[in-house]
Design a binder for these strands. Structure first.
Lengths: 210, 210, 210, 210
DNA sequence: AATGAATGAGAGTTCATTCAT
DNA sequence: TATGAATGAACTCTCATTCAT
């Protein structure tokens, strides 16, 4: 040990291949069940089964059920906000908004479980995500609302309340993931994301065209 | 029980005043907790506490936790669909749609717990409500979509996909109840239902004005 | 219920006969195992077995393992301090001390499990009894030490440090209960409480006779 | 292993320096936690942490938790009995006893963890030390009691029961280590070993002076 | 000589439900 | 009708120990 390069300190020596693989498996399985059954409706057994690991082994990687959930939320937060971050203040306003809407629809299609995970959490009062809303989401939304307000002031977008506009975009795009069970019934299993793209394009174009 | 005038058969001798009062209490308490914590997150103890009844007494009125939940869903279904049923086929199309939108916003404001109860249920795949969607919701939505399609064909509304229009109205109006925790943070506690009325009025007016 | 004298309020309406009987059974069984195996070494299963009740039924009466332990400690505290409280400040000093010693030996003989319960707790740093030492024990010991100091000042007892005297009385008398396993081996199963009475009478008489 | 010079047989090839160091570390850490939390209250993790070794490595040196505990008990037994062995049959009786008492107090002061380790074990019925009491302790105590009886018969010590005398010396001296939590509270954190020396010197002098 | 990874056997606790009155 | 009492099944989490390297 004397001649060792010494990473003895408690520094969490970067995870091994197995560690990374198993953590990934666990989070994948957890996403599946948490997004479907909610926090309380999910059991460690379900996660363990889904991950192909024993229950105590799950707890070898995560301190407890809650830590898995919080880790999921944290890890997904960035990806979740990416579409809004990608709005280009230097772009053509209407284009930027419409492209944001289309990105959000695509996320609903590609990541419906993630959408439902967040929906579940917020529906129950965001008990494990409260801080993130304040520190992660709020500033970004404030900035975006200000940007839109600027565009409106310049006459490059029709007059609307920017914050309610943002709410409406979230609501309409995430609806297809969050309320999929209902959408399925009413579209008779079609799911029709193309129709969603077309409809919402029309909607926001008519709403915002200057 | 032998001397009872009422034979054992399932004929439900009409409920006494106490029975009606207690059932109402139970359902009220159950709505409160189910809407906040979801199905699995809710315990009979919480419902019993909220109702001011003992746990076994709860089970005297309902066969089990699931029956309470299903009863709630059933009982609320009618009220939930009332705003759509109230659309007058003989009215002025744009007015009818806008008034539907405003009624839905008002329901979000007045009955947020009911909204979240349904949201929770659908988010989890509608495990206890599946049939209702097919038999209760689908026909009504089909009719309404057909009505709207008719109006569009007559040139009395701008061209849009009626079904996606309906989705968007649900999404945007219920958003204020279902994602209240998030709305609260971003509006800094204001909640702003007036802004929602104004914004959505503008939105659907611009979208649908012929 | 209308004509009821109404103890509806949350007041813990005095326990029923069954409640009292079962709580007693649980505490009796818990004393048996806690005193033998210590807090951590005791399982609820052992207590449940000893009490002839199911494990969840144990938890119907007590909120958890710790509450059982704390309840035992609290309930026994008074009895435990009674011998010291019974010292009569108006009595003949040497007699009073000697009678205190004999009472303590009798407690060791009659209540060895209680003695070991306290010994276990203090040995591990009194984690669940800390406050009691300060508020219950300390004032009483302070008073008793002052009383003894007064007797010494009056020349009615030989000079000794009162606090260390008290320690020695506790140590010598409780030894027979706490270290019974060892005493048994060395006395070859005799246990000899009579010898203890005689020896300690001699000891404190020679120490304290003025 | 085939080419190993050391055949598989149990012949314990003498331990390397590292082995000796690690065993010592483990036992030191184990003493710390066993004496504080008791056998069941102690986890291998705590020992591993204290020793700075991994948990499996602990089990490379010891077959299991129990073996660590038993080893501790065995290794300490000699040191624990040394003060009694040091009583000189050829010495001046009162001096010998008093010096034994003082040595025991010093052990309480210097090795409180060892004292509590034994106390814990005996308190719980000596489940892992039973034999030792018979084979190690009993003969020594028998001898010492006989020695004291002889001194008394010769009129060189006042009449007392030798075995109860020994019990009392153990009880009074070890009390300061075993019940330290209580002593601390009552001495207001002083701990006062000097007072203990003085008090017990007086006590046994008055008891035994011929 | 050492350890990251894994697990079976329980631990304490929760909870929907049943029993007895 | 109503409830105090009771419980089986399941849940999260712990821990001594083993496996594989």
């Amino acid at each position: 040990m004397p001649a060792s390069p010494d990473p003895v300190s408690a520094a969490p020596s970067r995870p091994s291949r197995i560690q990374r693989r198993n953590r990934k498996r666990i989070l994948e399985a957890a996403l599946e069940v948490f997004s479907q059954h909610g926090y309380r409706g999910t059991t460690l057994d379900q996660i363990a089964d889904g991950a192909g690991l024993s229950k105590p082994n799950i707890l070898y990687y995560f301190a407890g059920k809650e830590e898995i959930h919080v880790t999921l939320l944290n890890d997904l937060m960035d990806a979740w906000l990416a579409p809004m971050r990608a709005i280009d203040p230097g772009g053509e306003p209407l284009d930027e908004i419409l492209r944001y809407v289309h990105r959000k629809i695509e996320m609903s299609r590609a990541l419906p479980r993630e959408s439902r995970l967040f929906a579940n959490e917020i529906l129950q009062g965001a008990p494990r995500m409260g801080p993130h809303l304040e520190t992660g989401l709020k500033p970004l939304v404030d900035d975006t609302a200000a940007l839109i307000a600027g565009w409106i002031a310049e006459g490059r977008l029709a007059r609307v309340d920017p914050l309610h506009l943002i709410f409406s975009i979230w609501a309409t795009t995430q609806h297809y993931a969050d309320f999929d069970a209902q959408v399925q019934v009413l579209t008779e299993g079609g799911d029709d994301y193309d129709g969603a793209h077309a409809f919402l394009d029309t909607l926001y174009r008519r709403l915002l065209a200057p």
